[in-house]
């Protein structure tokens, strides 16, 4: 796995570099390298440092946050179908962000947007974790997630319906479809503290996820503080998912697909799947975003739309592989 981990890290670096190379105006590697190091001509630096690099980093950060959140939620709920998107957490976070836009709070301070998305993510995660206390059935939890997502969707539709002007409408649609278009370094900087804190909490509590393999009762028996573990995962995924949504809106399924690929390579240990899942999900979104930019369409494809087009069938496939005896 050590070799796999190094290869994954290298692949992420290569993908990020490639994201700076490719675009509507292709650029040679030397020019990109020069621009990245602060040399080269001004227009190259503008394209690479102000447009392509922050966009690629945003895609990576969003993917990493969703991959880690997915892996942690799957460990906590002991189900491979758990993910911020499926459980409705992303939708509620997006509702928070859309609400901030609708009522104009977002214009007050750049912190409002991530804060509103994170508040939404907390509310969604806490509700799911609360429901998980009452039922062991993953199907029930996913149904609750479907309900959450539908409600958040309806509330967002209502806001769009009542949108005061076409500009805020366009803004809101952007958040609902999911995109990292036009993300800047300041945008990244506002999300970064929450992303890092969320990831830190998840990473620090990862050992408890291994113990939960035994089921909650036995996990408690081997010495896990269940309450603390639940709080840590709710806090970590709330922060990371909220920050991801504030950067890119709703991007679904990447948090299912990445851990699913990683798990067999780490002996199905949720703790060891956390970091590789984050890297792989980041890699997937960077590559998908390159694809979105290269496909010649009239208006640019939204990353969230593409992620769902690819991810939803993967979700259905994973669900169909499962035997009902698990629930």
């Amino acid at each position: 796995m050590r070799g796999g981990f190094a290869a994954l890290t290298a692949a992420c670096a290569v993908a990020l570099f490639a994201a700076c190379l490719l675009g509507s105006t292709p650029m040679e590697a030397e020019r990109v390298l020069a621009a990245l190091l602060g040399f080269g001509d001004a227009s190259d630096r503008l394209v690479v440092l102000q447009i392509r690099l922050p966009r690629a980093l945003a895609a990576f950060a969003v993917g990493a946050a969703l991959g880690a959140s997915g892996a942690a939620l799957q460990g906590l709920l002991r189900n491979p179908l758990a993910e911020p998107g499926v459980l409705g957490i992303s939708a509620v976070a997006s509702l928070g962000a859309t609400g901030a836009l609708y009522w104009g709070f977002a214009a007050v301070s750049a912190w409002i947007m991530p804060a509103a998305a994170i508040a939404g993510a907390f509310a969604g995660t806490a509700l799911i974790a609360l429901a998980a206390l009452r039922t062991a059935s993953a199907v029930t939890l996913i149904l609750i997630g479907v309900g959450l997502a539908s409600f958040a969707g309806a509330a967002m539709n209502l806001m769009m319906n009542l949108a005061p002007n076409p500009f805020s409408l366009a803004d809101m649609i952007n958040w609902m479809l999911g995109s990292v278009e036009n993300r800047s370094f300041p945008d990244l900087a506002f999300a970064a503290p929450f992303l890092i804190a969320g990831f830190g909490v998840l990473f620090a509590s990862r050992r408890g996820l291994s113990a939960l393999t035994l089921g909650e009762e036995a996990a408690s028996g081997v010495g896990l503080n269940l309450r603390r573990q639940r709080i840590a995962v709710v806090l970590g995924t709330g922060l990371a998912t909220g920050a991801a949504v504030s950067l890119a809106g709703v991007i679904g399924f990447v948090g299912i697909v990445a851990p699913h690929i990683v798990r067999p390579m780490v002996d199905h240990d949720p703790a060891r799947s956390l970091l590789p899942s984050a890297l792989l999900a980041g890699l997937i979104l960077v590559l998908a975003d390159i694809g979105v930019r290269l496909v010649p369409t009239v208006s640019e494809l939204k990353l969230g739309v593409v992620a769902a087009l690819v991810g939803a069938p993967a979700f259905i496939w994973i669900a169909m592989q499962r035997r009902t005896v698990h629930d």
Binding site: R78, N79, L214, G215, E217, V222, H268
Partner: peptide, 13 residues
């Protein structure tokens, strides 16, 4: 050490 009655293993570890 506690061995509960239900001993589900979530993953094929």
């Amino acid at each position: 050490s506690y061995l509960p009655q239900n001993r589900p293993l979530a993953w094929p570890s």
